[in-house]
Amino acid sequence: MIAKEEHLLTLEAQAKDQQIFISGRIWHELYPKVDPGLFLKVLGQKIDLKKYGDGIVKFYFTFVVIEKLTRNFSGWVGSDYFPKRASVDIGIRVPYEEIVAADEATVIRLMEKALLEGIDTIAAHERKFVAPFDYKAFKADVEAIFAEENWYKTEDTPA
């Protein structure tokens, strides 16, 4: 096996342990102004879901930044819990017009707000949890990360 293939397989194995999945459905002109990758990277490094219980082992979150959402795409927004996978899947809409008008810091604030709002929706699924999960502590830890100045500016983030 050549070194390059080994490297790829190592990365693939690492991906299997991933707990936090942050994505988006974003009008292409607003990318990378709206960059879920910033949230994915930092929360992926700093949050360990096992700390809060086994009720949620995978957290999927989607920022929806679309001007008009027709009826057939309304399903992009919402919150679901899947007991078989012990995963939660949340889609929250971020106001399109506000994003268009916002500067970088404001965009981050709007995205933070949406993500915290998404964590709040977990409460509605508590009865279906396959095991306990302390979503309040999860939210508190995420809030603490967001409270740090320039939390999203990692070493390799372009200035």
Binding site: A15, S23, G24, R25, H28, Y60, I66, F73, S87, D89
Partner: peptide, 23 residues
């Protein structure tokens, strides 16, 4: 064009860590 039953990216996209950009 159809309503997607799940928001789970892996269920719809075919791989993890992908971003959906309407063009």
């Amino acid at each position: 064009r159809k309503e997607e039953s799940e928001r789970y990216p892996n269920g719809n996209y075919g791989a993890e860590n992908l971003l959906f950009l309407p063009l």
